[in-house]
Design a protein around this nucleic acid. Sequence first.
DNA 1: TATTGTTATACTCTATAACTATA
DNA 2: TATAGTTATAGAGTATAACAATA
Lengths: 159, 159
Amino acid sequence: MDQTNELPLVLRSAYHGLHRRSNLRFEEYGVTADQFVLLATLARGDALTQRELAARMPSDPSTVRAMLALLRKRGLVARQTHPTDARAKTVSLTRAGRQKFQQVWKAGQSIRDQMVSSLSSSEVTTLVTLLRRVAGSLAELPPVMAAAELCPPLGDDRG
Amino acid sequence: MDQTNELPLVLRSAYHGLHRRSNLRFEEYGVTADQFVLLATLARGDALTQRELAARMPSDPSTVRAMLALLRKRGLVARQTHPTDARAKTVSLTRAGRQKFQQVWKAGQSIRDQMVSSLSSSEVTTLVTLLRRVAGSLAELPPVMAAAELCPPLGDDRG
DNA sequence: TATTGTTATACTCTATAACTATA
DNA sequence: TATAGTTATAGAGTATAACAATA
């Protein structure tokens, strides 16, 4: 029997559980689960432009902007003008932001442990590998669709 | 190397891609990805109470209530008073709701296909199995934690 | 007393469109 | 022309607390 039909719902269940539990656990630190993902992404690769940040999380650029406004107000992230591109701004963690990230990372350890409590370590590796492939498949629009939607049918194939 | 640390982020990436793509695809049908999950849950087990519905999706009861208000206004779901419990109300798909669900289910097929395009069928089975276990581990509060948070340390073990 | 659902309320995330400034 | 970011705006999901009705 093909389990493809069940994959979306079980993926949602797993993510929802993680998200909900993270929000509860992180509440005392004053950050949401999504804000933590932003902090974690900056901790991995500092001084990203807002668009790079959005692409890596992943999230929408305008969503990221709204999140950054909240985090900046709280002094956890700061902006600098991009060294070579005057349009762009780079974003990085402040000292307080790095500290907050480390605290929350530590607070989240029990959730990560819980999450894999019914998996062997090789199963964890398998799961990460398969999820990475799924994420990759869903990341960009498939070229066929993108092309089909951009180009109306042509009468001939000049050009 | 332990990949547990990466699991949350890659789980989020996969889910985010699915969610975003579903919202785009379902837009012409006037339903969101989350509303579709609600319709799908009712399609599987009709005449649920709102709490059962929330538990199965999974989602928060008050979130489900807000979603139901939107879907009821559009004639896709209807409520009946529970046969034996006058407090409760059961929710079910209307004729239009069933039809909408089938349309959107069909529209989502290409997303489900895309999602597993880089997986063999046995890998799909493995992924569903592992995700189901992760979802189960995160579903309820672990008894140890729940007990620890409710009960301050005792000086003796009477009772 | 505990539970189902409602009401009121608020915040976060998400996303689009029109716009400015720069490449 | 295309891109980075802002502004304004809107809607959806999430969640809590106080409340009424019922078990």
